[in-house]
Design a protein around this nucleic acid. Structure first.
Lengths: 137, 137
DNA sequence: CTCAAGTTTGCAATTAAATTGCATCCACAT
DNA sequence: ATGTGGATGCAATTTAATTGCAAACTTGAG
């Protein structure tokens, strides 16, 4: 287990188990967000329900966030440091329509839109669809 | 059939049928976006598959857009005039965590974020979660 | 080090949404 | 008026998300 993995789990007081270590490290080392199916593929011995509940635990503890891009299934990405500073605020993600990957762009700030009167916002989620650098012809 | 409904369908060269008229008018008259289940409830005699395919037709013709908020099912909203001007660009939506409704805020502009090098964007979808004016205590 | 208490896990089953096949029906251009 | 391609209804299927339960773990107290 890497120091970062251990630190993240202890910080959030999440009990350390083999599944959690492996799932978290998979997410930490991935350049893009992963679906439950993606994780199942990378950890074939792991149970879908366990993955599901592990991700839920991580999400409840603000270790990662769920992203709904244009694919059928929800994807998950670990919060970057920048993102963790203010977990509930800004989540820009880029979904490549060619490779289908979704990348976290939490370091790219944007201007929050003005809301109608009496509306209050807790969380902003921005999905940008397009073509990533790898897929440019 | 209202003049607007007829105009929208003819403009997009979509064959006019009873289902399409009713589904489109339902969406046009709704203050918030609707799921397939919502439409089924409002038009109890209508078939789920027909609603599904009707919405798909509308979406393919840029008459409406699909929104994935935090609920289980996808919702649909007719593009506002402002939105239609540049259909593929900006779609801010507000999802109220109390009543569960999702409102289209296409008239509220925001600043597009800067993208990493060699990324190109086709479409931006912004979901804002919070509390709408009706649900404020 | 050992054990109890509370969590997590694996398996199987369920829920619920999205999607499709196919035969029939309908809108509309001619 | 009519033929044709597209639209519809029904039933079934696919697929993702979610839960129940018993067994296996993790951890803190002794």
């Amino acid at each position: 287990m890497s120091a970062r993995t251990e630190q993240l789990l202890k910080e959030k007081k999440i009990k350390i188990t083999a599944n959690r270590i492996l799932i978290l490290e998979l997410l930490l080392n991935s350049s893009h967000s992963l679906s439950i199916a993606d994780i199942e593929e990378d950890l074939p011995w792991a149970d879908r329900a366990t993955i599901f509940r592990t991700l839920k635990t991580f999400e409840d503890n603000a270790l990662l966030h769920a992203i709904k891009d244009n694919e059928k299934s929800v994807k998950y990405a670990v919060c970057s440091d920048a993102c963790q500073v203010d977990h509930h605020k800004i989540h820009p993600h880029f979904h490549c329509d060619v490779c289908g990957n979704t990348f976290c762009l939490s370091e790219y700030n944007f201007q929050l839109p003005q809301l109608p009167d009496n509306y209050t916002a807790n969380k902003y989620s921005l999905i940008i669809n397009g073509i990533c650098s790898n897929c440019q012809k």
